[in-house]
Amino acid sequence: MRGDGDGWVVCDAGHRHWGRFGAAGLLLRHGGAVLLAHRVWWSHHGETWGIPGGARNSDETAREAALREAVEETGVDPAHVRLTDETVDEHGGWSYVTVHGRLETAEPPALEPTDGEATELRWTPVDEVGDLPLHPGFAQFWASADAVDRLL
């Protein structure tokens, strides 16, 4: 479903970003693993790994947008997701919010991409995430020890 947030904008630093009202993604943890999506080749920074997410709509909080995008892209049951924290990457006039969450189920479900934006979903052990070719924005987030420490 297309929302009013879909569209490209230019931040104060002159960089082009997706999401007229910013963007948000869900870093979903289950035990010692996080859910990652392998982005399709034609997408912005295609063939990299990142988290489910996308443009925020004008009437959404970052948490609402991140959860909506994760449900749309993965089919994860939102009733089992507990949102715990968030990290904001501010670009001046545009921001990306990484919403941290925990999946509260006995076992992580086998999830398949549901909207064509990813070719694969994977529960990736935290200590293996950095070994993957990561989306540049997610790589910068992941390199921040403070951000990753909050997951554990």
Rank of each mutant, 00 (worst) to 15 (best):
residue 80 H to T: 04
residue 56 R to A: 06
residue 77 D to T: 01
residue 16 R to W: 09
residue 37 A to S: 12
residue 138 F to W: 00
residue 18 W to F: 13
residue 117 E to Q: 15
residue 145 A to N: 10
residue 81 V to H: 02
residue 49 W to E: 02
residue 135 H to P: 03
residue 48 T to G: 03
residue 120 E to I: 05
residue 94 W to Y: 12
residue 8 W to N: 08
residue 115 D to N: 11
residue 80 H to K: 11
residue 8 W to I: 08
residue 111 L to D: 02
residue 86 E to P: 00
residue 134 L to E: 02
residue 152 L to A: 14
residue 27 L to C: 00
residue 40 V to W: 05
residue 143 A to G: 07
residue 99 V to N: 03
residue 91 H to S: 10
residue 79 A to K: 14
residue 65 A to C: 05
residue 91 H to F: 11
residue 61 T to W: 04
residue 81 V to N: 01
residue 64 E to K: 07
residue 116 G to L: 11
residue 20 R to Y: 08
residue 118 A to Q: 06
residue 31 G to K: 09
residue 92 G to D: 09
residue 138 F to Q: 00
residue 102 R to V: 00
residue 89 D to N: 13
residue 47 E to H: 13
residue 20 R to A: 08
residue 8 W to H: 07
residue 97 V to L: 08
residue 139 A to F: 01
residue 9 V to R: 11
residue 10 V to A: 08
residue 93 G to D: 12
residue 13 A to P: 04
residue 82 R to T: 02
residue 85 D to T: 04
residue 39 R to T: 03
residue 7 G to Y: 09
residue 33 A to F: 04
residue 2 R to E: 14
residue 5 G to D: 10
residue 57 N to Y: 12
residue 91 H to Q: 14
residue 112 E to R: 12
residue 124 T to D: 10
residue 8 W to G: 00
residue 58 S to I: 07
residue 6 D to L: 15
residue 113 P to G: 08
residue 138 F to S: 01
residue 111 L to Y: 02
residue 116 G to F: 04
residue 58 S to Q: 12
residue 150 R to P: 00
